[in-house]
């Protein structure tokens, strides 16, 4: 029955911190099988929106549904279909990579034998086997992203929600992550991720939404959003950035 529903459907999600409105009513439908990019400048509310969508942050108003299951009313069903990699959140980083994967797998109620097999495979593919029993806290930033992705993928979720998966990742690891995500979507999964790296979004995504000041300002397939221009041009125009004229900051050049 879940196939008639969009993989992720947000309706009127809103969140206010003290006096600042972080997210002011977001409606979004992520079709099943799509590769969805959520674009926005820093502070636009990407992390807040995704946190509310996966049940990490209680919204002031609105609904989030994963394949038809309400994240806040029926969390067990919804969370079972979700794989999440939050940004700015620590992992249980005093475990080694293998231990962390085992923890996540068992926490999802998986069979220990399956956990062992999949964890070993993921560590191998993500080139983390060499780290051995190094604790995740001692990993480099790129390795932390990779192990975080592995934790999100381990239980074979139907929808993958990734917050800034390409931040602080070197080009080699980024290419690897891209390939894995691509294969995941080809295999029938759905991905939504936030980013402000235009090249990555243009290369990977089938759909794009631009978030600015807590609202969705553009949404649609990649071609609909960018038209005949580059995505970066559209983005800067929508967000309303400014460019340096050369007058100010003259003291920077001696």
């Amino acid at each position: 029955m879940t196939d008639q529903h969009p993989a992720l459907s947000l309706r009127g999600l809103a969140k206010r911190f003290d006096t600042k409105v972080a997210v002011a009513g977001v409606d979004l439908d992520v079709p099943t099988g799509s590769f969805y990019g959520l674009l926005g400048p820093n502070g636009a509310g990407k992390t807040t929106t995704l946190s509310m969508a996966v049940g990490l942050l209680r919204p002031d108003a609105g609904q989030a549904r994963v394949l038809g299951y309400d994240v806040w009313a029926d969390p067990v069903r919804a969370k079972g279909l979700l794989g999440v990699m939050p940004d700015g959140v620590r992992l249980f980083d005093r475990l080694s990579g293998a231990e962390l994967l085992a923890y996540h797998g068992l926490l999802r109620g998986m069979d220990p034998a399956v956990v062992d097999q999949r964890a070993a495979e993921l560590l191998d593919v993500l080139a983390l086997t060499d780290a051995g029993r190094t604790l995740v806290v001692d990993y480099s930033a790129g390795m932390k992203k990779k192990i975080g992705l592995a934790c999100a993928l381990l239980h074979g979720p139907r929808l993958l929600v990734l917050d800034e998966p390409f931040e602080a990742v070197d080009p080699v690891s980024a290419a690897l992550i891209r390939d894995i995500l691509h294969r995941y979507v080809v295999g029938g999964g759905t991905v939504i991720f936030s980013s402000h790296v235009m090249e990555v979004v243009e290369r990977l995504c089938s759909h794009v939404a631009i978030l600015a000041q807590g609202r969705i300002t553009r949404v649609g397939t990649l071609d609909e959003v960018r038209g005949d221009r580059s995505l970066e041009e559209v983005f800067v125009e929508v967000v309303g950035g400014r460019t340096a004229t050369g007058e100010e900051l003259s003291w920077l050049s001696r």
Binding site: T134, L135, D138
Partner: peptide
């Protein structure tokens, strides 16, 4: 320099056994 990385050689075994 947040301390040396710990390269421990523990008993082999699957990830679950290590946890």
């Amino acid at each position: 320099t947040a301390g040396p990385s710990r390269q421990r050689r523990g008993p082999a075994g699957g990830p679950v056994a290590q946890l």
